[in-house]
Design a protein around this nucleic acid. Structure first.
Length: 422
RNA sequence: GUGGCUGUAGCUCAGGUGGUAGAGCACAGGAUUGUGGCUCCUGUGGCCGUGGGUUCAAGUCCCAUCAGCCACCCCA
């Protein structure tokens, strides 16, 4: 149970019995993304620490207390990436993608790192998949981006989620709104919980979704962001909704949605599954029209989202969806006697060269043990080779599901095995 | 960073008030000299998370620490 070197807190091993599910889900994501013209981009797992400090916001929890920061041998400050958008935008700017693509459509997946207290659906090294579309402010793009997320969930067979959308406005209207919140809540400061008193100075919008009853009562009559949007933002948001409706993507407007990262502007959305526990956000994202310019590029609008693989798998568990199948060999070679054992490796290699998956275990010698192993690895057929078969130049091919068995010359085996899936 | 619960075999867990460990599953072998799944029998497997303390004696009591789970916070 206790090994000398335990894995770091908040990390996990993906063992073979689970790894096929991860692969399945990732392939499903890539497949859906491809239909939208989203092409894969891969960025380093660590970046200059200030990339995140500037983009995500240096007063955000992420950079204040959750980043894995380290210095290299020359004293440069780096951070294990806590999120995917800033690195993608950095790559967009650095490689001048605005010149080669009209609107860049990108997708990515990989590990992210956040020094959080682990709990259900939250880890220190976790895996995200996400998309970013950079170069257009058109509301159709917002709707399309959201559509990628809902289509993915739909194709995975998931039904227990809901889409909530909001518009958080531009920096200017956002500031005005936050001031309105302060004006509203400040007189009641004494009635707020300790966390909310802190939010008052740090992140006023978070006052809206406090879980403490007293704060919730106050929040009921608080100013609503949507009333502070300027005409452009309001029209944009309305069109996003229109497109979603025409796309038959069900959504609810939730004016309380807050995004935790500073770079968000305009459309914000979350896909929530309440069965996942406290960490119920399956996918979250929104528009970030100032970020590209802020990171030194031409001023280009962007929209995107990210989702957590762990939470997606949790949701699949919740709905009893298998998500792919574990690897199983077509054939398992059962070698009886030393003569057979001597030719088994080469037989296996010829079959594998022909594209057929076969297994055998030279450490098992009894027929019983080998047949059991064939059964356990779920092989479709057992290829039995003993003295009789060797003498006659055949292999006994036993279908493990039906029990039917026949002798075949090696030349015929390959054609026969190819009739089995995988 | 805060709080609650929990750490005993590979896995899931039993082990009143302290007397140096057990089950089921899994695994291995056998019943069945070359035929798996089912059944039965047998067997392997344990620094009882780690360190310290109390005691003649600690899996059991006390302290610390690490880890897991869940929640707060935050977010994917």
């Amino acid at each position: 149970m206790s090994s000398r070197y335990a894995r770091p807190r908040g990390t996990f091993d993906i063992l073979p019995e689970q790894s096929h599910r991860w692969r399945y889900v990732e392939e499903c994501f890539i497949d859906v993304a491809a239909r939208f013209g989203l092409r894969r981009i891969v960025t380093p797992i660590f970046e200059r620490a200030d990339l995140f400090e500037r983009s995500v916001g240096d007063t955000s929890d992420i950079v204040e207390k959750e980043m894995y920061v380290f210095s290299d041998r020359k004293g440069r400050r780096f951070a294990l990436r806590p999120e995917g958008t800033a690195p993608v935008v950095r790559a967009y700017v650095e490689n001048n993608l605005h010149l080669s693509q009209g609107t860049a459509r990108l997708c990515y997946s990989g590990p992210m790192f956040r020094y959080d207290r682990p709990q259900k659906g939250r880890y220190r090294q976790f895996y995200q998949y996400g998309i970013e579309v950079i170069g257009s402010d058109h509301p159709a793009i917002d709707a399309e981006v959201i559509g990628v997320a809902t289509l993915l969930l739909q194709e995975l067979g998931l039904t227990g989620w809901r889409l909530e959308i909001n518009s958080v406005g531009s920096p200017a209207t956002g500031d005005a709104y936050e001031q309105a919140l302060l004006d509203y809540f400040s007189p009641h400061e004494a009635q707020l919980c300790a966390d909310c008193r802190n939010r008052l100075v740090k992140n006023p919008r978070r006052l809206l979704d406090c879980k403490v009853q007293g704060c919730r009562d106050l929040a009921v009559d608080a100013p609503v962001m949507l009333n502070y949007l300027d005409d452009d933002d309001r029209a944009h948001f309305a069109q996003v909704q229109e497109h979603l409706t025409r796309m038959s993507v069900p959504f609810v407007v939730n004016p309380r949605i807050v995004r935790g990262l500073d770079y968000y502007t305009g459309t914000a959305f979350e896909i929530i599954d309440d069965r996942l526990g406290a960490q119920s956000t399956l996918i979250g994202g929104g528009r970030y029209n100032g970020l590209v310019g802020q990171l030194g590029g031409k001023d280009r609008p962007g929209v995107g989202w990210a989702g957590g693989f762990e939470r997606l798998l949790l949701a699949l568990d919740e709905e009893g969806i298998a998500a792919g199948e574990p690897l199983r060999p077509v054939g398992y070679i059962v070698a009886l006697g030393e003569q057979a054992a001597a030719v088994t490796p080469s037989l296996a290699h010829r079959l594998r060269t022909a594209g057929i998956s076969v297994e055998f275990d030279p450490d098992k010698t009894s027929m019983k043990a080998q047949m059991k192993a064939a059964d356990k690895c779920a092989a479709h057929v057992a290829l039995i080779v003993g003295d009789d078969e060797l003498a006659r130049g055949v292999v006994a091919l036993r279908d493990l599901a039906t029990g039917e068995q026949q002798n075949l010359a090696e030349a015929d085996i390959i054609a026969r095995l190819k009739t089995y899936k995988r």
